[in-house]
Amino acid sequence: MTERTLPGTPLSDEDMQQGKVLTLNWPASLRYEWDTGVAIGRFLRELKNGRIIGRSCHRCQRVLIPPRMFCERCFRPTDAWQFVQDSGSVNTYSLSHLRWDASRVEEPILVAVIEIDGSSQGGLLHYLGDVRPEEIHIGMKVKAVWKPAEEREGSILDIRHFRPIDTAQDGPA
């Protein structure tokens, strides 16, 4: 089959501009309202209080972030709520020049997976801030920067971003 021409009709931008083919546009307009659930509902409520909470499984000895009411490994209920630190370390990071819809941004968005102190490899996707991009590295110790209490609404965005731990300000890590 390799050498012969395969079927299919590619269209160029020019074809579209010149209206060589007919198209139909339909903008999707839908709204969803998600219940946040038992585990994440409590997690969000605690973010509003300026704290991070996980769930512990006494069988596998893990503290789960994000919390869940079941342990997917032991396949049994988790046992207890457990507060963890609002600090952690950078598991991995990236500088994004793209928004969610692939449009470009001027200043890169700094994103990371943060391993939360006190959890068992529990990670959260979040932003980094108050840091020069070239200083970011895997293993960097970071701490949550919270919105003021009156602005918090029980959302992952109640944490503005994570910033590098400053030993002068925060004490030894």
Binding site: W34, I40, L44, T92, S94, A112, L125, I156, L157
Partner: peptide, 17 residues
């Protein structure tokens, strides 16, 4: 939908990470 979409992630983020 609850913990990550508010951060407006781009698909390529997870690959880059």
């Amino acid at each position: 939908n609850i913990l990550e979409r508010p951060l407006e992630p781009n698909l390529i983020w997870i690959f880059a990470l």
